[in-house]
Design a protein around this nucleic acid. Structure first.
Lengths: 219, 219, 219, 219
DNA sequence: TATGAATGAGGATTCATTCAT
DNA sequence: CATGAATGAATCCTCATTCAT
């Protein structure tokens, strides 16, 4: 499980780095997040970021060699942090050992937890979703994190459930897609498309989980 | 049903206009679609589009006053055409009068039909999804088409089903979100994220519909 | 007096040409005058002129090889026509033979006459004044018309008056400048700077002539 | 006399700003003045200005957001400085209290003084006269400076003179127009139309003042 | 003769990045 | 470390002019 350890290390380094951020750096990051989220990476200018961050234009380039490096410095820690909980040891354990109701409660816990994270980092979520399509660097990072780490565990769990006859017999990839579609569809609607609606978040989460569980149950 | 007629007219006008396109215009549109899809609107340059279209840069601006107008000329006909089948009169009729299995077969027909359309217009789908976030003009067009037209009919149909006890009792908005998430999640995965995988499209569509139907069935 | 004859011929040719103008040409000239007057030559576009003239862009260039030729076709006939009365034979005669009061009445007649012409052609006056500075072709035409024709006659007349002791003894060039400044200053104020004021034109003309006459009288 | 103070402040600020100009900025202004004067604002290109100023084109836009702002930064300080002497307190005083010969000597002093200023800033004078017609911003500035400040004082002075029977009884506006026409006509001829003639400036000024004084004297 | 699509050179302006202070 | 003036390539767009129809 070297990969996992490496990942955690990476995360912790990042965290430490975060702590080492000078005030100016923090201002820059904060401003960049807001502006990237609002107008998209390509339509944001470093001078605008500098202005919003109350910093000279040159200062940005002292900390981030290029504009793209600034983007990556913003996005990858978020991706890592967003993903980490999936590795919490009890996740694998529970799914392997417990009855299928456990999948439900696990998803529920996980979603609620990730929901809070998304809520606190809505602009970052927006940036990731908007920019993923255009930046191979981000896609690679995503593959690294998702395809190589989460996906296999996910599959393992799904296989277990299938063996116990608790899961519809369709390809794992499809199942995962459906789960993620439901979750991301909710998050995107909640935080990007219509953040100003009067949301009953707990109910929406419960309903979404119910929808997934029934949709995937063995018939 | 004036609204519907107006919409059809609009569509047909558009189609006629399409036929009137000069060769150069077609080259421009084709090139623009490819480049916008690949790099995103903001990162595409009109000079690059002109080069790919084998046309002088000025020629683009003879036909489309601004770069943004070019984008809109590309996107809105697609949005309209993509949406129009939802207004086919039998849609509303069937859902109102027939048993709920009808909903399923309708969704299935609809999805298959829209799937083909998306397949033939994958780059356009990509552009719409990528650019919607940044262009109020597109959002308005979307609202016009979706919120004012499709959504209300959708809701009516759902209410009917709920009355017959065939539908889970959660808010219509949530149901619609779940259906759309599943469908869009599929289309995005299929055509944008992993278009090169070895897809069994019919099965995926069937599985997705099954997922939706079970997920939303009354318990 | 070949020069004079040539000039009259030129004028008459122009006049004949004017008569031969096709409707499209007239529309073009009319539109060009309006637009040049409003925004200046350099800031006017041929496409705007074509639009205002209800004519295709290419049509302008069928009649005028270049944009500049269009300007010249507009300005030089005006300059010639504006100048021609100064050659009316009785001008020279009267100034030579009559007492100095005659200068006054002549100036008065002349100014009133030219005033009407300026009034009917205010936009053209505006164009001439605005563009003279930038177009050597116009300057040459002006020199041809003014320096070579009018100025010498003017001088002759002034010399006569000086001989009779009726004129202040300052250089002719200065006298001419003062007269022209007063006249042009009036026309510019009247038609360009403040055309919307409530002008009593006859009184202004009289006052201006009085001002000139007293200003130049032998002390 | 707040208005006057405000104006002086403005002038001094401008002067200080002038002193703060970086060398590049000075090069830009110098080049722009020369080129604007020669070809007119609309026909001057920022690339040409940059080249003449030995500066990158982008540098112009670092200091002046737009080409028009560059024009205004050039013209308005000139207009203000050109106008300021008219507010020198002794102007009003003298005209009110002294015999009418005083008007003459005052005009003479003023004209000589403004003549020197125009001589040193001939290209600027040219720009102002050429561009005034096309830029509402300049017209406003001019109105602010002339119509609201100079004109009323001028009128007061003229009324005083009329009361003493020393001035011809025609409307003040006409008188002012005549004076200005004579002065501007002289300056324009001297510096714009025929700057290369062999001018005896002092005599021209004297003659011009004489012309004005006699032209306006009570008959 | 009139059209208007097409051109491509040139226009103002933006922007990521560098570097002397 | 931080600044912000300077850069020049690239951007979107305009325009006078040409030419096939």
């Amino acid at each position: 499980m070297t990969d996992f350890k490496k990942m955690v290390e990476t995360l912790e380094q990042t965290t430490e780095k975060d702590r080492k951020l000078t005030p100016k750096q923090e201002q820059i990051l904060k401003a960049a997040v807001e502006i990237f989220a609002e107008k998209g990476y390509a339509s944001s200018s470093t001078s605008e970021i500098a202005a919003k961050a109350n910093v000279a234009e040159g200062t940005i380039f002292r900390h981030y060699k290029t504009k793209k490096e600034l983007l990556i410095s913003i996005v990858t820690p978020f991706m890592t942090k967003f993903t980490l909980p999936f590795f919490a040891s009890h996740f694998a354990n529970k799914v392997f050992e417990e009855p299928p109701e456990e999948l439900e409660s696990l998803l529920r816990t996980l979603l609620k937890n990730r929901f809070e994270f998304a809520k606190e980092n809505a602009p970052l979520l927006r940036i990731v979703i908007q920019e993923m399509a255009f930046h191979p660097e981000l896609q690679e990072k995503f593959q690294e994190v998702f395809l190589k780490e989460i996906f296999p565990k996910f599959e393992e769990a799904l296989n277990q459930l299938k063996d116990k006859g608790k899961l519809v017999e369709i390809p794992n990839a499809s199942i995962i897609r459906m789960i993620i579609s439901a979750v991301v569809g909710f998050l995107v609607t909640r935080f990007i498309i219509a953040p100003d609606l009067n949301w009953d978040d707990d109910k929406e989460i419960d309903d979404t989980i119910d929808f997934i569980m029934h949709g995937l149950a063995q018939k």
